[in-house]
Simulated assay, not measured.
Amino acid sequence: MARQDELRQDVPHAEHARSAADGRTRDAVARLLLEQGPTTAGVLAETLRLSGPGVRRHLDALVAEGSVVTRDARQAAGRKRGRPARQFLLTASGRARAGRGEDGPAELAVAALRRLREAAGEDAVKGFARDRALAMVGEHREHVLAGADRAERATRLAGALTAEGYAATTRGAGEGDGLDARVAGEQLCQHHCPVADVAAEFPALCEAEAEVFAELLGTHVQRLATIARGDAACTTHVPAQRSDQHTGSTTPAVTTGGGPENQGRQVV
């Protein structure tokens, strides 16, 4: 009888341990989605060394709680038609879960910027946004500028942004992405934005970032998407460097629009 009582007491402890382990695994899944952006279940399982059914169980739980949504993966150029793979990506609440402790008091920041705008005007907000963007990459500036060409600079800039909490990556962009070959280049993707909630009301924060990126890369850039506007990542297109161009030889022009009217449009 005493043994049965001990077993009954062990059940809640075992359930609690299992629940805690599930929570840690789901945090790991969310963190990987934050770092890599939209990802398939197969890639998640391989990276985290989980079984396919195991990772799908955790993904189903994250979808049910509203931390993750799914979409069809983009088909690569020349790929045979068929059922597209499913990708999983974080929602706003999922990014908050994955980046816990990094977002800061957004409400206070919004209130402070509103007060700044009321007291000193929109130019003061833009000045603050630029100072913040410069400070964000300031200590990485020389490292980025030391890149041999524009593509390497973009890669170094992604590393600098990751060090600042933006989980950034680069990937080549071209005709396979539905783009004109003339505007091939790099896409700089920031999978996390610590100030997304603030930038939703103050897009000058996003615009200032793009301006600083253009100055570092020595070319115009275009914001294709932003987390602040509900996209999965902040995506900035960096045009390829032609052989007759020299990085930094001209004053860069910047296109920052990321709204629906600008999605998929490139500047050449």
Rank of each mutant, 00 (worst) to 15 (best):
Met1Ala: 15
Ala2Asn: 09
Asp5Leu: 15
Asp5Met: 15
Arg8Met: 14
Arg8Lys: 15
Val11Phe: 12
Pro12Ser: 14
Ala14Val: 11
Ala14Arg: 12
His16Lys: 13
Arg18Asp: 07
Ala21Gln: 15
Arg24Phe: 09
Arg24His: 12
Arg24Val: 12
Thr25Ala: 14
Asp27Cys: 06
Val29Leu: 06
Arg31Cys: 10
Pro38Gln: 06
Thr39His: 00
Thr40Cys: 07
Thr40Ala: 11
Gly42Ile: 03
Glu46Lys: 09
Leu50Met: 15
Pro53Ile: 02
Pro53Asn: 02
Gly54Ile: 09
His58Trp: 08
Ala64Arg: 08
Gly66Pro: 02
Ser67Met: 00
Ser67Asn: 04
Val68Ala: 05
Ala73Arg: 09
Ala73Cys: 05
Arg74Val: 11
Arg74Thr: 10
Gln75Ala: 13
Ala76Met: 13
Gly78Tyr: 12
Gly78His: 12
Gly78Asn: 12
Arg79His: 07
Pro84His: 10
Phe88Ala: 08
Arg95Asn: 05
Arg95Cys: 04
Asp103Phe: 14
Gly104Cys: 00
Gly104Gln: 01
Pro105Phe: 08
Pro105Leu: 09
Ala106Arg: 07
Glu107Lys: 11
Arg114Trp: 11
Arg117Met: 08
Gly121Ile: 03
Gly121Ala: 04
Lys126Cys: 10
Arg130Ser: 00
Arg132Asn: 05
Met136Arg: 15
Val137His: 03
Glu139Met: 12
Arg141Pro: 04
Ala148Ser: 13
Asp149Ile: 13
Arg150Pro: 05
Glu152Thr: 10
Arg153Thr: 00
Leu157Ala: 01
Gly159Gln: 07
Ala160Gly: 01
Thr162Tyr: 06
Ala163Pro: 00
Glu164Lys: 12
Gly165Val: 07
Ala167Thr: 04
Ala173His: 09
Leu179Tyr: 04
Arg182Tyr: 06
Gln187Cys: 08
Leu188Phe: 02
Gln190Gly: 07
His192Arg: 11
Pro194Thr: 08
Val195Arg: 07
Ala196Cys: 02
Ala204Phe: 03
Glu207Asp: 13
Phe213Ser: 01
Phe213His: 05
Leu216Phe: 04
Leu216Met: 06
Leu217Lys: 00
Gly218His: 03
His220Cys: 02
Val221Ser: 03
Arg223Tyr: 10
Leu224Phe: 07
Thr226Trp: 03
Arg229Trp: 06
Asp231His: 08
Cys234Arg: 00
Thr236Ala: 01
Ser243Asn: 14
Gln245Gly: 05
Thr250Tyr: 12
Pro252Val: 01
Gly259Asn: 12
Asn262Trp: 15
Asn262Val: 14
Arg265Gly: 11
Val267Ala: 10
